[in-house]
Design a binder for these strands. Structure first.
Lengths: 219, 219
DNA sequence: CGGTAGATTTCGTGA
DNA sequence: TCACGAAGTCTACCG
């Protein structure tokens, strides 16, 4: 990885045009072709960037990064006024990030234990196909009625709309909808209940039995 | 900005838990409290990060970054096995990025020239208020009928849903819907047309008169 | 390869 | 502060 600290101006043309006035920035050139222009503030997102595959052309006082983007071209032009530092580090092999707690894990746990949704449910299949996309979980309840379950980490109105579209498309008489999420936004809950969709907030740690449901509030 | 290159392992607990196995990484500590862990590959997003406000605690062989996140806490623990470089740069004042070509510009151009939507339209107002949010453009056509226009850079099913919600809420008899975007996804077009919503793809450069419509295809 | 859904989305804006 | 919508979203997955 090459790290350059320089007073520079950056011009981007591509999906939009943008100009970054002259100031001191950090330029990162990764070995996979990624180029990032970072400021000393402003959070995790670079001010300008280009994702691989790129072509980097270095000239006197400027660096131009190009990328084919469909029929046209993306171009990042870095005009260097004052080079303050320029170092390259050999960082060797990488190792992948291991994540836990994303939506898929929630789906796996609920597929294994659909009763955690607070109803007596039996799983029929995960990723039940419809012509507009898969329903996360398709179950049947104690009465034999069908129940379509949509799972989100955070449920917004969009999740309710999505489940509603599925329910419209599912050719099953009286199929109910259940929305399960770690967090259900108030407006989503209101819309869901107005449409007869049951809402359930679930906790991944509780699902896994790592932590007991917090019942002390009610004792 | 402090830049550290080190062989390290990173543990994140917060909205999810993640472990980044030991390897050589770039650690960025911005003056606003942002902390980013970058790899020598993998595009523009850091492997791990924390956005301000943060508290950074440095100890022997490890750096812990903490942040209050609602009722719980986010924690990023960086265990340093081998410190390869550690430099700090004073980057001085920043300057804001100037953008052009985003959705707002599209709305401005279409507000100035609603006829570009391929119909004889007259603008009544931009950001027409409803109780669930503003309609981008409200117009009347040659017959005096009302037309609600939703503008997107890229129109997906969600844009159709949004416009549909507006049309349901607008208390105007026979108000039509028009979806205008630089790119309209096929599924969005299908859903829109099934609901009687007219789709128009627009080109910002053409709208501005910088480029003529490409008519050569039809000659 | 295009399209869709997820993301520790982040980030801005308006109520 | 909360909630919603945009983003050069990016990225993984599935057809």
């Amino acid at each position: 990885m090459r790290l350059v600290v320089a007073r520079c101006e950056v011009l981007y043309t591509g999906r939009l045009t943008a100009r970054l006035p002259q100031a001191v920035r950090l330029l990162m050139f990764k070995s996979d072709g990624s180029v990032l222009v970072h400021d000393d503030a402003g959070g995790y997102r670079p001010l300008n960037w280009m994702t691989p595959p790129t072509v980097v052309e270095e000239r006197e006082g400027s660096i131009v990064v190009r990328k084919r983007a469909g029929k046209s071209e993306d171009k990042l032009e870095i005009r260097i006024a004052d080079l303050l530092s320029d170092v390259t580090h050999d960082m060797g092999e990488s190792a992948a990030l291991q994540k836990d707690g994303v939506e898929r894990h929630l789906q796996e746990e609920l597929a294994a234990r659909p009763n955690a949704l607070g109803q007596s449910l039996q799983l029929v299949r995960r990723e039940w196909p419809t012509d507009i996309g898969p329903v996360d979980l398709m179950c049947r309840d104690a009465s034999g009625d069908w129940v379509a379950v949509e799972i989100k980490r955070i449920a917004t109105i969009e999740a309710v709309e999505q489940l509603t579209r599925y329910l419209e498309r599912i050719e099953i008489e009286g199929c109910r909808g259940v929305l399960a999420a770690q967090v259900i936004k108030p407006q989503a809950r209101t819309l869901a209940e107005a449409r007869g969709i049951h809402c359930v907030e679930v906790d991944l740690a509780v699902l896994r039995g790592e932590r007991e449901p917090d019942l002390t509030l009610f004792t």
